Amino acid sequence: MTDIPILEVTNLKKYYKISQGLFKSNIVVKAVDDISFSIKKGETFALVGESGCGKSTTGRTLLRLTEATSGEVRYKGKDLMSLPYEKMRFLRKELQMVFQDPYASLNPKMTIKQILTEPLRVHKKYTPSERTKKIIEILKIVGLSEEHLDRHPNEFSGGQRQRIGIARAVILNPDFIVADEPVSALDVSVQSQVINLMLDLQKEFELTYLFISHDLSVVEHMTDRVAVMYLGKIVELTETEKLFKDPKHPYTQALISAVPASHPREVKKRIVLTGDVPNPANPPSGCAFHTRCPFVMEKCKSIAPNLTEVADGHQTSCHLYSEKKEEKTNVIIHSEV
């Protein structure tokens, strides 16, 4: 892993207009609301949060599988959002995606050979005979064999289908892969196999991952940095080890407290949040988390906090830390006076 960003996201927004009611009035749902982050070459960067927080929408928007409302996504210095169709299509061999549902992401009418040949054919890579060799090679890497070539997706288990999905993503030798909850639909026993496969492939092909998940135990095991999302916004961003050792945002603290204990003697204090996740079509004013926060203050209800650095390389958006900064500043000013 290097310190050079392979992907830089600046003020990314994805809004949806929904018509409802008798007069079909438009309601704007802010699925992704002004988020910024960067991903270093060779690292695994995680997006975590509850269902509906905007994780998957972010991943799809980065690759322009859905168009952004506004914002900038720079891949190796190129602004993906402004690229014309043909240039973006050419870049897709470097930008791939592993989808969440291994049952829906593979065409049931195509054989495995046809599924894996398609990206090579679309991007005009290799001759027909070389393509077959490449497919057999990649199948072996992901734990399958040549005898699977003429089978259809319905003849495979969920874990095997996800291996095929991963094979399809890496067969073009990409640099960056968005993995959208790649193990959430799999049995626990199969999850570890797929995770280890992804880690092995990362070393072998020097891949960079955006890993989207709600399973924090998986995130802790395989990622380098984490961004926590809530109602379309990033509320905390730091290195994985720091996040699990010292979570700053009350929402992150609640998420981590819900992770099952890894040892029978480990005692964990569970933080139970009250209330439901607000309707994204009608979010609360101020801090979006204030309706469920155990530390809510009056200013939280009207003023939205900014994502600021509260420790070395550790950012969070919470008024608790802005209050502490103000207190420290006042102490310094008074002491100088």
Rank of each mutant, 00 (worst) to 15 (best):
M1E: 14
T2W: 05
D3E: 14
D3C: 02
I4W: 01
I4N: 13
P5Y: 04
T10Y: 05
N11T: 00
N11H: 15
K17E: 14
F23I: 15
V29L: 06
A31L: 01
V32N: 10
D34L: 04
I35Y: 01
F37C: 01
S38T: 10
S38A: 10
K40G: 03
A46P: 04
A46W: 11
G54P: 03
E67D: 13
V73T: 05
V73L: 08
R74C: 08
K78G: 05
K78M: 08
S82H: 00
R89I: 05
E94C: 07
V98D: 09
F99A: 13
N107I: 04
N107Y: 04
P108H: 02
M110H: 15
T111D: 13
I112D: 14
I112P: 10
Q114T: 11
T117V: 07
R121S: 12
K125N: 08
I138R: 06
I141Y: 05
L149H: 12
N154I: 12
S157I: 05
G158R: 04
Q160P: 00
R161T: 04
Q162N: 13
I164H: 09
I166G: 03
R168N: 11
A169H: 09
P174F: 08
D180H: 02
S184R: 05
V190N: 12
L197P: 13
L199N: 12
D200S: 15
E206Y: 15
D215T: 08
L216D: 05
S217R: 07
S217L: 02
T223Q: 02
T223A: 06
V226Q: 06
V226K: 10
A227K: 06
V228F: 07
Y230A: 05
L231S: 09
G232A: 03
I234L: 00
T238S: 13
E241C: 07
F244H: 11
K245W: 01
H249E: 06
Y251V: 02
T252A: 08
A258C: 03
H263C: 12
H263Q: 13
R265K: 09
K268L: 09
R270G: 06
T274Q: 12
D276F: 04
N279Y: 09
N279V: 13
A281N: 09
S285H: 12
C287N: 05
F289H: 11
H290Y: 14
M297I: 00
E298W: 03
C300A: 07
S302F: 01
I303C: 02
N306L: 11
S317Q: 00
H319F: 00
Y321K: 07
H334M: 11
V337E: 03
